[in-house]
Design a binder for these strands. Structure first.
Lengths: 332, 332
DNA sequence: CTGAAAGCGCTTACAG
DNA sequence: CTGAAAGCGCTTACAG
């Protein structure tokens, strides 16, 4: 009598075969090794008993858990959910599970979470938390842990990555402002210790000469503080580019504080096209990055890496597009 | 010579003890059974080798994987990330991993994802996808799978759950409109096959008599369609309550289409206080639910359930609060 | 306090 | 084509 969840041994007994045979009959890869009649007998027994293979046992035996760890700074940050959703979709299509961990960009939590997920024998990681100089992930890569970075790059590390084409994004945002005859353009840069911050800033400097203020974080609060500083340093500015949408939102607040209207007095552009950017203020003009697809591609790259660890690491730059909304208008 | 990741056997060899002893020395629960000197020798060896226990092997042996499955309709829906973040935080503090799956409220995907996570031997589920009548989860509960519902209830199921106090939320929203002297109030109800939809609608009906339009989904598009219908049926309406924030956003669009201003002509209230509700339109007045805490409490309840499966199921109603912003004003 | 053995549920060379 | 055996890396009664 079978009780609890049935095991392979139960199925084998019910079908009158050895459990090795039952295993072969049930696994699509090995089904060909089994007599067709036997195989269907086993399958019938499995169905009848409601047998579901125990993934933990299989994972221990095969050393393949079909699970992947995803490290994000904060799942509640609107940038990440669509990326994670893309990851999840791609992984699920290969039967892989998504283990998610928010690190709050805290070194200790990062280390702990990475270790905990490694202990669970995940087959690889998708990392959205990396700073430009980040020994933790350099070490992991060196240890041979399959790793793909998404929306982030680590300096000097030849690991696969999927990022948006930040440089083109900034260039097209600046071009848009220039076309609207803005001549005094300010940039509220994001933190320079993460790759998007430095890449976008470099692109801004290459595109135009303007006042640059570095914000302490990719947050509204930091954008507000940065916006105040920008207006203090350069009160005549007519166009402001934010390092991301949240910084741009903070900039909108700084403008309002200063009694300036957007876009009548000052145009503002964000970056990322986060959810509801179209509904905020006059509608935020921003650079759209393909969030969901970034997740999908990152998962795809990781699957490749897991299959072929030796293959050369690809760095994917996904195309961006400027989305023009109400926050930009001709210079006054 | 040890190569690859060290196992318990490697540690035992290095410390000159049997692996059973090594296991006991390394596990806080059993450390007391081991001579203190031996224990520290083992721990030193483990540290030196960089030993990390293999969770998969442990899980197979102990039947406890320290992993939990979380089922959401769509992680990219702004309602869920803060809840999931709360879940994750609470689970991580007990060393539990969070396995996340988006189901798109599709029956097949739900079934598949549930089965896949069960096959991975997760110890329980937190379910945010449940409809009021949902045999899948009724069956799972009957099978003895530990289950906690969050933001959703299943009719007639005595499973633990964490929901916001929807009835009080709607009552306070209506009271706010009434206080502002609104007399013609409309309600854009969410889908009635999910518990928040029916609970909120019942609360609305109890609070006031007004025009009710049922929206097909908790989306902006459905809110727009519903808003149009509401204005067609009741052009004099001065106060609109949305079944959630997204529906309220759609209502704002419907008003704009009809040439009505918010709040000058019509006041609008949402539900949930999703991220950036304060930045949308005139600032959305809405009922705040404690997203993060709902996640934390749901995880807490699940941990209890896993520890004590027989204990009576608690249903937690978390307090809500009306957040008054620019989208509501005195009736014209 | 420690060791030897069994076993969690699978898969997979190895024989036959 | 099928079976018997070993083993993935742990934990835990059972002896001693």
């Amino acid at each position: 009598m079978v009780q609890g969840t049935p095991t392979l041994a139960d199925v084998a007994r019910a079908a009158g075969v050895h459990k090795a045979t039952a295993s072969r009959a049930l696994n699509p890869h090995t089904r060909g090794q089994v007599n067709a009649a036997t195989a269907s007998r086993v399958q019938a027994a499995a169905r009848k008993l409601g047998y579901v293979p125990n993934s933990v046992a299989r994972g221990l035996r095969t050393r393949r858990t079909a699970a992947v760890g995803v490290l994000v700074p904060d799942l509640a940050n609107p940038l990440f959910p669509p990326i994670v959703r893309g990851i999840e979709d791609r992984l699920a299509s290969d039967g892989y599970a998504t283990l998610i961990a928010s690190t709050d960009s805290d070194d200790d939590r990062e280390r702990t979470q990475l270790a905990a997920l490694e202990a669970r024998q995940v087959e690889g990681f998708i990392v959205a938390t990396a700073r430009r100089s980040h020994p933790l992930f350099g070490d992991a890569a060196a240890r041979g842990v399959p790793l793909v970075f998404v929306n982030r790059l680590v300096d000097g590390l030849a690991a696969p990555s999927v990022t948006a084409d930040d440089a083109v994004g900034v260039a097209s945002a600046v071009a848009h402002l220039v076309e609207l005859e803005h001549r005094r353009i300010g940039y509220l840069a994001g933190p320079q210790d993460m790759s998007p911050g430095s890449i976008r800033l470099a692109a801004f400097r290459q595109a135009v000469s303007g006042t640059v203020v570095e914000c302490a974080a990719y947050t509204e609060a930091a954008g507000l503080a940065g916006g105040r500083r920008l207006l203090a340093e350069n009160p005549d500015v007519t166009g402001v580019l934010g390092g991301n949408d949240l910084i741009a939102l903070g900039a909108l607040e700084a403008l309002a504080e200063a009694g300036l209207r957007c876009p009548a007095d000052v145009s503002v552009i964000g970056f990322n096209d986060m959810p509801f950017a179209d509904r905020i203020g006059p509608g935020l003009t921003t650079v759209r990055i393909p969030h969901h697809d970034m997740g999908v591609q990152a998962a795809e790259l990781l699957m490749e890496r897991i299959r072929e660890p030796a293959v050369v690491a690809k760095k994917l730059l996904l195309p961006v597009s400027l989305v023009v909304r109400g926050s930009t208008a001709a210079a006054r």
